[in-house]
Design a protein around this nucleic acid. Structure first.
Length: 212
DNA sequence: TTCCAGGTTC
DNA sequence: GAACCGGGAA
């Protein structure tokens, strides 16, 4: 018998405690972090954000040349590409005067569509922004989610939205749970459910099919 | 020193 | 399916 999605949540929460995501001081910093973390370890994003810290404001970034921005975010990798993605994001955000309050009246679906139309923002980045910058109830799916739950015994090989729907269907519709759950998944994937998993020491091994 | 992990676009 | 990338692990 497979454990339930909600049961695994409680198990992880009991193990790791609350994660208080996203690690950012402002919604804007969160959104920049979401772009920088694409295909990248968070430790490298921290270095990039640290070098950007005096410019962590949309107008300040707008003032930077491509070359300056590229060199500041270099440690996060894919820096030329990410510079262009930040530019594309900023020109969308500028239409709302860089003011998240101006986006508050949009439905989640509408906001998601707008984010997805920005070149360089795909499903995962859009949903991270919706959840962690706008507090919308959207469950974020990433490579860690698929890896952990496939190992546990679920069959998550469908496309992004289908997997997302599956999680949302099995969870209470609460932003706080979506927020913590994704953060806990990331923590668990980094500590134990790595590419090369540490099953012997895994705190949730008893509910995992991988080990049996 | 090479190898690996990882979202998005085209 | 390749290309984009720096940093940490092997």
């Amino acid at each position: 018998m497979l454990p339930t999605i909600e049961g695994i949540y409680h198990n992880l929460y009991r193990t790791y405690g609350p994660q208080y995501w996203w690690p950012a001081d402002t919604p804007f910093e969160m959104m920049i972090g979401a772009i920088l973390v694409q295909n990248t370890a968070w430790t490298n994003v921290e270095k990039a954000l640290d070098q950007l810290k005096d410019h962590l404001d949309p107008r300040a970034i707008h003032e930077l040349s491509d070359q300056e921005l590229e060199s500041m975010i270099r440690p996060s990798g894919f820096y030329r590409m990410k510079t262009q993605r930040i530019r594309a994001f900023l020109s969308w955000y500028e239409m709302y005067d860089y003011d998240p309050k101006r986006l508050a009246s949009k439905s989640t679906k509408e906001l998601r569509q707008e984010l997805l139309h920005i070149k360089g923002i795909g499903s995962e980045t859009a949903d991270s922004i919706l959840l962690y910058a706008f507090n919308r109830h959207v469950f974020v799916i990433d490579a860690y989610t698929k890896r952990i739950f496939n190992r546990i015994g679920f069959d998550l090989d469908e496309k992004y939205e289908a997997i997302q729907q599956f999680f949302e269907m099995h969870l209470p519709k609460k932003v706080s749970i979506y927020n913590e759950y994704h953060a806990l998944i990331v923590e668990h994937a980094k500590r134990f459910c790595k590419t090369k998993p540490l099953c012997e020491q895994c705190p949730i091994r008893t509910s995992c099919r991988q080990l049996i």
